[in-house]
């Protein structure tokens, strides 16, 4: 049997581009080969490498849920060479996709439990597929709470669906920004503090969080105060990656490769790893 070439991207077309914030763009893409699109399966939390040929590749979470397969969605924050190039693309442009890569959120183990999502900035993107997946399989889960924070309203991605999230009765949504902003009708305050105010019960609950390192640090402390055990906290990591299949050697933390053994880890698993985030 011929081995799969893991380095050869599948060609895809950008069908829709959404300017989320001044530095975040969302791309909705479909594979050019309908057969590939048809057979493509993935799990919430898995990532893909997007290729801009001539510039390179970068890793992003597939932030559309596997339950909604019209397209694959990736949100890209402009930080370096590849992301800048991706930001110059528009509808109809071709990109390469290597996906799915990595592990995924343990959504089976979360069944029957309450879930608290805590997303900071672009860190909302990896939470989105899991949250939408759970909403699409609503009866399998208990109370679902979302706390989504950004620096300011203009830094808040997924604006177009926030209202529908707020309106859902089966989802408790809290939006927060770091500092006062004219016209903002939701909470003002740093995510860890707001989390303490909301004070979700840790009883039979799993917290899923992603965001910048400093936010994660204090959010973990807040969760601990609320009685969450390390096993009840799930996060997803970001590292510089090249191959995406555990070979090239740059995303390892000790013996664990974020591209293969991650990006999703529980706080308990992270504590077992050497301290090199």
């Amino acid at each position: 049997m011929k081995d799969k070439n893991h380095y050869l991207p599948e060609m895809a077309t950008i069908n829709e581009v959404i300017q989320e914030t001044h530095n975040i763009m969302t791309f909705r893409v479909t594979f050019n080969d309908p057969q590939v699109m048809e057979n493509f399966t993935f799990q919430p939390g898995q990532v893909g490498q997007l290729s801009s040929f001539g510039t390179g590749e970068a890793t992003f979470v597939i932030n559309s849920p596997p339950t909604r397969k019209d397209y694959l969605q990736f949100s890209v924050m402009r930080t370096g060479e590849v992301t800048s190039k991706l930001h110059s693309l528009s509808e109809g442009d071709q990109i390469g996709v290597r996906a799915p890569l990595g592990n995924f959120f343990p959504y089976e183990d979360m069944k029957g439990k309450d879930i608290v999502f805590i997303g900071g900035g672009i860190g909302m993107a990896p939470l989105r597929p899991l949250m939408l997946y759970m909403l699409d399989n609503r009866k399998d889960y208990g109370k679902i709470t979302l706390l989504y924070g950004a620096r300011s309203p203009v830094d808040m991605a997924f604006n177009y669906e926030l209202q529908s999230w707020l309106e859902r009765e089966d989802l408790e949504t809290h939006l927060t920004i770091d500092a006062k902003y004219e016209g903002w009708q939701h909470t003002v305050g740093l995510i860890p503090n707001v989390l303490l105010d909301i004070a979700p019960s840790s009883e039979n609950c799993v917290a899923v969080t992603c965001g910048p390192p400093i936010m994660i640090k204090f959010t973990l402390q807040a969760l601990e105060k609320l009685g969450f055990k390390d096993e009840q906290i799930v996060t997803t990591l970001e590292k510089r990656m090249k191959c995406g299949v555990g070979i090239c050697g740059r995303c390892n933390i000790g013996s664990s490769y974020v591209c293969m053994d991650g990006p999703v880890f529980t706080a308990a698993q992270l504590k077992e790893l050497p301290n090199e985030l």
Binding site: F53, G54, G56, K242, C243, C248, G249
Partner: peptide
Amino acid sequence: CYCFNITDET
């Protein structure tokens, strides 16, 4: 030692 980089040239 087997680590590598991947880069594009056009």
